[in-house]
Simulated assay, not measured.
Amino acid sequence: MILPAPPSPVLLLDLVAEHAALQPALNAAMQEVLDSAAFIQGPAVGQFAAELGEYLGGAHVVPCANGTDALTLALMSLELPAGAEVIVPAFTYVATLEAAALLGLRPVLVDVLPDTFNIDPAAVEAALTPRTGAVVAVHLFGQCADLETLGAISARHGVALIEDNAQALGATFQLKNGETAEAGTVGAVGTTSFFPSKNLGCLGDGGALLTCDPARAALLRQLANHGQSQKYHHQRIGLNSRLDTLQAALLRVKLRQLPANTAARQAVAARYDAALAGVAGIAIPARDSRSTHVFHQYTIQVRDAGRRDELQHYLKRCGVPTMIYYPLPVHAQPAYAYLGYQAGQFPVAEHLCGAVLSLPIHPLLTVEQQEYVIGRVGAFFGN
């Protein structure tokens, strides 16, 4: 069977084209850093932190080397005792557990909601024990977890709420008091990643911590800098975790484009919603009405999970790339077998690992390319 070809190459993410549009500004930023030779802790690092903080409504931003370091530093700032429990979702990237495990803390998994894919607050409350030190809410695929309920649970039980905001930078959440909160700024600490594929990505590795508490921001800066506030005077055991000046300079350029890129992603998602809502074989991403969605990924569920891989292979033959985030639940990863979880303990997460499929979405995806993707998905299901 001869399958149709796309009108032009369809990419999951087109960084080449995104950067081409910004090339003069990126080149100028790189040249400025080269001319200054201030490659570590140059002025662009502080400038970027201030600009991102302003974008996030006045939050303190502490740049660091990557998103996993950000999670590690966030947990370090809580000064939890060895063996303390950290509640994390069972449907997430492994770094969420990894940071806790590396610090001698114990990840405690809970299931997620079947519609938004985010951590289930009821499951969080059921998993709390006297040993619980923190809850990590992952804002998966670009939409906030239930910050209202999770914040209330954390406050009621005296445990810290950490927001893993690597996929939802720029999303907002509407609180009952009428305030609009920026993702990553509600809990004790928020974390984010500037990995190149993120909505705000650098041209290498990078990350940051977010907080509205100036004292915690000072502690995080110290922890990220070998535990020192004054050179050669180390108050704490820390990390060497820095965002280098070149990446900060490039991120300053890309931050200015982030609102427009977010709007473009949302427009792509809206077109997918309108076209795919009637395809009987899939479920389009659900929305929490209290949260905006910045669509780091546009992730459908295949209703007959047994056909998910078949759909992915069909789309690949048609020239449509897709990704599965995530094909194996974290409790099934060999590295975390020591936690003692068994198959069937987290049925929603396990189902999602077999049913989800992320379609191409990026700011420069054309209507023509998207219509081709939509047509191929529909054709597979006989629409």
Rank of each mutant, 00 (worst) to 15 (best):
A152N: 05
V367F: 08
S291L: 08
G354H: 12
E32P: 01
Q222N: 09
F141P: 01
A70L: 02
T116C: 04
N383T: 05
L219N: 00
A101D: 15
Y272P: 01
G207M: 09
V189A: 13
P285A: 02
F173A: 04
E85M: 07
A355F: 08
R252A: 09
Y55R: 15
T191L: 12
A168S: 14
Q247F: 07
N383A: 13
R317D: 15
L80K: 01
V108F: 03
L3Q: 08
G344R: 07
E98G: 13
A264W: 10
L169P: 05
I361E: 08
L147D: 03
P259M: 07
F195V: 09
A82H: 09
F173E: 07
L78P: 03
A126N: 10
G57H: 02
F194S: 11
A74S: 04
T132A: 08
A99H: 01
A59P: 01
Y338G: 06
L12V: 00
G344I: 02
L161H: 00
G201W: 00
R221D: 11
L175D: 11
S77G: 06
H296L: 15
L311G: 05
H139F: 01
V138Q: 13
F173S: 01
H157T: 09
A74W: 00
N66T: 00
G58F: 03
N225D: 15
D288L: 04
N27C: 09
A123C: 04
Y341R: 10
A188G: 07
M76F: 06
P321Q: 10
Q301F: 02
Y272F: 11
Y272G: 02
L56A: 08
Y338N: 02
